[in-house]
């Protein structure tokens, strides 16, 4: 398979997933009518379903997949650990806890701002960093992940605790925390764009130094880079991205693990090539999973988080059971 073909496949899959998500599910509409609405004809109701229900949902799903896939790839490059994903650094958990807290204090999932989730993501990250600093091991990527797992456990328990306090909040948290992009609207999608733009700029700044970190900290320093600063910037970007994704769709598991894994399988370990491939693979995975979630038990829906977990768990098993872990 030539390199060009390998790079085109994910984009093709994304196109297919996007088409499928527009044609099937979310609002009862036969696919023929959806198709004619798609080319600018058909009934006004059909156009409404397409443009105001399915298209925003597609955009939200694609954005969530993009953000989580890129965040996972960045975290894995940073920790040089192919198992690292936003769930591991306390990022998703911090985000989920902040959102749950907001719901408890009366916010509803519909009015949640991206900012709350991002603040939570950053706080989760900061907690992990503080924990590693206390041990004086802030420079050790593996301990960073261990501290992250501890903080994640703590935050998830606290989130469960919140659900015991208030029945209304518990129902809403439970619905949101399984992960879904159902019923999302354009204004929620727009709200995440500034974060994505900022993240893009920072990634472009930091990508070359981050790639050099794969050769070891001393080599990176010898090349004139500052590992401490690179880490800080990458963690900020991860918080931005994961916070935005969590605000949109709840804490989706395994997306940050599976997407970079697939990208590396196609492109090799270099973070720059991996990131390029995460751009189509992340959205393709989430949009495809979301379409499945509408079709499997139609006319009702499965939570998206269940599907991504069903897809992700076997991939995790494959990585762990592989005779040797890929080195990053």
């Amino acid at each position: 398979m030539t390199t060009r073909v390998r790079y085109l496949i994910p984009w093709g899959l994304l196109l297919l997933a996007a088409l499928a998500s527009l044609l099937f599910g979310a609002g009862s509409l036969p696919w023929q009518e959806a198709a004619s609405a798609l080319v600018g004809q058909g009934h006004e109701d059909a156009r409404f379903v397409l443009l105001e229900l399915r298209l925003p949902r597609l955009a939200v799903g694609a954005t969530v997949g993009l953000a989580l896939g890129v965040a996972g790839a960045l975290l894995q490059a940073l920790t040089r650990n192919p198992l690292a994903e936003p769930g591991l650094l306390g990022v998703s958990a911090g985000s989920a806890f902040a959102v749950s807290l907001a719901i408890l204090f009366g916010a509803s999932t519909a009015t949640l701002t991206t900012l709350v989730a991002q603040a939570g993501a950053l706080a989760g990250c900061a907690l992990v960093l503080a924990a590693t600093r206390l041990q004086g091991t802030g420079q050790d990527p593996v301990r960073l992940v261990l501290a992250g797992a501890t903080v994640t456990g703590l935050l998830l328990s606290l989130t469960s605790l919140l659900m015991l306090i208030d029945q209304r909040a518990a129902d809403e948290i439970r619905f949101w925390i399984t992960g879904s992009v159902a019923g999302r609207q354009w204004h929620q999608w727009w709200a995440t764009l500034p974060s994505l733009a900022l993240a893009t700029v920072v990634i472009l700044t930091v990508i070359r130094p981050l790639a050099s970190l794969a050769l070891g900290e001393r080599v990176a320093m010898g090349l004139g880079h500052r590992p401490g600063l690179i880490r800080l910037l990458v963690i900020l970007v991860v918080a931005l991205l994961v916070g935005a994704a969590t605000a949109l769709a709840g804490p989706l598991v395994f997306v940050g693990l599976v997407v970079p894994f697939a990208a590396r399988a196609l492109a090799g370990a270099d973070i720059r090539r991996t990131l390029w491939l995460c751009l189509p693979i992340g959205p393709a995975l989430v949009v495809f999973a979301d379409t499945l979630s509408r079709l499997l038990v139609a006319p009702s829906e499965l939570p998206l988080g269940v599907i991504t977990a069903l897809v992700g768990a076997p991939v995790l098993m494959v990585i762990v059971r592989a005779r040797r872990m890929p080195t990053l």
């Binding site: 794969a214 050769l215 070891g216 001393r218 080599v219 320093m221 010898g222 090349l223 004139g224 090799g268 370990a269 270099d270 890929p326 080195t327 990053l328």
Partner: peptide
Amino acid sequence: VARRLALLPQETHAPEGL
């Protein structure tokens, strides 16, 4: 400094396939 001085550390490693 990196334009004037290059360093090769003792233990080096690289991502697979580089």
